[in-house]
Amino acid sequence: MSDAATESLITDEMRAEIGKESEPWTCEVDKTAVRMFARAVGHTDPVFYDEAEAKKAGYRSLPAPPGYLGTPVFDPRTSDPTFGGRRGSGPGPQPSRPLKRILNGGTEIEHFDDICAGDVLTAKSHIASYEERTGSIGEMLITTTKTTYTNQDGKVVAVMTGTGIRY
């Protein structure tokens, strides 16, 4: 077995990042974004498209469908390589050795209140853990990231836990 196979993928620099809160970013939930997301995953319920229908159903405005918070459009200057930013594949330092492939291992969202168009959420994330594993696809680095979303009234409305797999 080579040294490379026994050496840890998790560097001291990476360990030091665990638990550190990111700078907050703003996530404006607007009607167009809700409609686009709803259309993309095939919703037909009019509450996701028509504000009058949403209000009739008791919502402030169009409710955000499940999974909406998963990959919101951030400020492209910080998340889009076209603008010189790093692609939004999660914060934190990268493993020391090249694990080029990235898979989304899973996502969990806890909801504490409805999220509707018009809400302005403040998101903050941190790396909760790094884990090394060897599976059928070879050696893997599993990164768990937690993101907390707080609305304009200061209420935590959702916590998302994401699991990224590099291999």
Binding site: F48, P65, P66, T107, E108, E110, H111
Partner: peptide
């Protein structure tokens, strides 16, 4: 998620993990 909201309502979910 759409399968669940079609069945249970737009904001019935309190937790959804996959």
């Amino acid at each position: 998620g759409r399968m669940l909201t079609d069945w249970l309502g737009p904001t019935a979910l309190t937790n959804f993990g996959v």
